[in-house]
Amino acid sequence: MNELIHLLAVLGLGFVLSFGMGYRRILKFRHLTQQRVVAGLVTALAVFILLSSAQWLQIITEQSVTQITMLFYCLIGGFFLGFATKMLQLRKQAQTQLYINRSIWTQTAPALIALAIILFGLSRSGILWFSPFTGINLTSGLSLIGFGCCGLTVQIVPEFRKKGIIIIDQFVPWPKVVSYSWQSEQLLQIDYYIKGDILTDFTTYVPFEDRRIIEKLLKKKLEENEEEHKKTITNKA
C-alpha cells in the first residue's frame, strides 16, 4: 500500500511539474528545428533501448521499467494539457475572432485528427469501454488525450482577433504589428516585433476573395495603434 501511494505521488508530481512547463510554454513550435526533433527522437530511442537492455540484463526489474514508462507518459500528458490550457487562455485574452482562412485542410481535417487521437486515448485508458484499468493503459491514454487536446487548440493558420494575432502558438498584440505587404496576389507578409525589439515576420496564404476583408482589418488595426508604433520607433532611435 505504501509503495502504491509513493508511486501515485511521484506520478502526480511529475504530471503537475510538466503541466506547469507546458503552461509556461518552455518549448514552442518555432523552437522545433529539424536538428532538435531528430535529437529528441534519438534520445527517446536511446532511453528505450537502455531500459530494455537493463531489464534484459536483470539490472532493473520489469516493475521498475513499467513505473518509469508510466512516469514518462504522465510527463507527456501533463505537458500537452498545460500547453492546451495556455492556448485557451491566449484565445480568451485575444478575444473575438475577426478573420481566419477557413478550409477543410486547415481546420476540419486537423480537428478530426485531434478528436480521433483523444478518442483513441480514452479507448486506450479503458475509460471508454469500462474495461479493466492498468497503470500503463491509463497513463498512455492520458498522454494521447493531452496530445489531442493540444492539437485542438493550435491552428495551423493565423487567427486575426480583436486584441491581436495568434500565430500557431504565439500571441502577437496589435501594437506589436508594424506593417504588412503582399508578396503575391494571395501571399501576405506581416511584420511584427517579438521580445520587445526583435523585428520578424510571417507569411500566410489568403484566398483572393478574402483580400479586401483582411486588408480592411489590417489597415484599421494599424491606424488604431499608430501612436504606439511611433513611440516604439522613437524609443529605438
Rank of each mutant, 00 (worst) to 15 (best):
F133S: 09
L112F: 06
T33H: 14
A109L: 15
I26T: 13
K230W: 14
E3W: 00
L50A: 15
G151A: 09
Q186K: 09
T139A: 05
Q189K: 15
G135K: 03
T43I: 05
L187R: 09
Q63H: 08
L138N: 00
I136Y: 13
Q58G: 00
C74K: 04
T232W: 13
H229W: 07
G146N: 12
L8M: 10
I68C: 06
I127K: 00
Y205P: 00
Q89F: 14
M87N: 12
R30H: 11
D191V: 02
F80H: 11
I156H: 06
K162F: 04
L27M: 14
F202P: 04
S181A: 10
F130Y: 12
M21D: 12
A116K: 12
C149G: 11
V157T: 15
S143H: 08
M70I: 06
S184E: 01
I168A: 00
C150Q: 01
V154K: 03
L152K: 07
Q93H: 13
R24C: 02
I168E: 01
R36S: 13
Y23W: 15
T106M: 01
E228F: 10
L27T: 15
E159R: 08
I233Y: 04
S140K: 05
F171C: 03
W174N: 11
E224W: 12
A46T: 15
L199R: 12
F29R: 11
T139N: 02
E224L: 15
Y23V: 07
L188Q: 05
A116S: 15
P175I: 03
E226W: 11
A54F: 12
I168V: 06
G164K: 04
V65D: 02
T106R: 03
T204D: 04
K221N: 08
L98P: 08
V10W: 06
E215L: 02
P158A: 05
Q67I: 01
I165W: 06
L138G: 01
Q67N: 12
K221G: 02
Q97H: 02
R91C: 14
I113Q: 08
R25Q: 15
C149H: 03
W56G: 06
M21P: 03
V47E: 07
R211F: 02
S18W: 09
E3T: 02
V10A: 05
L188H: 07
K219Y: 10
I213Y: 13
G164M: 01
G12R: 08
S131P: 07
L199A: 05
A39P: 05
L71M: 10
S103T: 12
L152M: 10
L88P: 02
L13I: 14
S143N: 08
H31G: 09
V206W: 04
F19T: 04
K219N: 15
I214P: 03
E224A: 15
L50I: 10
C149S: 11
S140A: 08
C150D: 00
I127F: 03
Q34H: 06
R24H: 04
L112W: 01
E209I: 13
